[in-house]
Design a protein around this nucleic acid. Sequence first.
DNA 1: GAATATCCCTACAAACTTTGTCGACTTACA
DNA 2: TGTAAGTCGACAAAGTTTGTAGGGATATTC
Lengths: 151, 151
Amino acid sequence: MWVSRRTDYATRAILALSLENGGPLKLEELARRTAVPQSVLEQVMPTMRTAGVVRSERGPAGGYRLNKDPGEITLERIVRLFQGPLAPISCATRHNPEPCPMMVGCTLRDVWEEVRDATITLLGGVTFADLAKRAGGPWTDPALLPTATPG
Amino acid sequence: MWVSRRTDYATRAILALSLENGGPLKLEELARRTAVPQSVLEQVMPTMRTAGVVRSERGPAGGYRLNKDPGEITLERIVRLFQGPLAPISCATRHNPEPCPMMVGCTLRDVWEEVRDATITLLGGVTFADLAKRAGGPWTDPALLPTATPG
DNA sequence: GAATATCCCTACAAACTTTGTCGACTTACA
DNA sequence: TGTAAGTCGACAAAGTTTGTAGGGATATTC
């Protein structure tokens, strides 16, 4: 339960874009398909743009596209963007781990690091090309959505 | 970064008790050794008592002991007590997962479930007997502690 | 049976984080 | 110049986490 809403939204958005071979999607449409409040997506997408994951065009016929091949975007990349360190506890991050206050050379930390590494391995091993393939087909029946988002 | 302080404290406390072959430890001493504010441990320990993990005795010469063999207490058990579901996202819990709002049968969920399962496998595979063994020896130099906790 | 040592319970405030909204702004196109 | 997009920053409401405080309950000792 540690993945924030925004992280979730971001990954859904990238998946949606991955299923849309190259064509741009307007924020509004993206919000509808992913069932994300538009106003929140308005914050999430620029973050990914700054990070070079997506690219945007303004004006009519504008929208968002992926800035790379889906095969080059890992889940890890997106999650890290919004989530920060993936370690379950701050003494087990890879950069600047907080020192353990317990003497007994925190044997617990080893386990936390294993969890961290397993997480990284999994998230780092999945690209959005994989996810799109597994999802099968382009997009399915937007009409089935709960009447779109109010935002 | 998803393990709460209280979860951390609880695991440290159980490790400390595991290193103390059977003898009871007073809350105060436990707090000192684990570098946890005593007032917080006062909340954490009863939770574990209720869960049957530790046992307590009141009055002089009282304190806490493990209620089972350290080999029968997994990290998973303790983490779950304080952390709740281990899934990274609420649509991927084993019990009553929240339905995914995205149609495309949330292919992302599969990955979240893999992360969840990897976490469970790791945490469930480590007992406090393992941890105590890895820690080596009983307890090390409590004198090295940052002058105990103020609480 | 009083004094003391220890655990137990509840309430709670301060701090922090997350979530979603809003309004004003910028850019592209026709 | 008007319209269709994306952009940015501020922010309030809600939720979570963290630590503290104070009054109880129970066991031992003398």
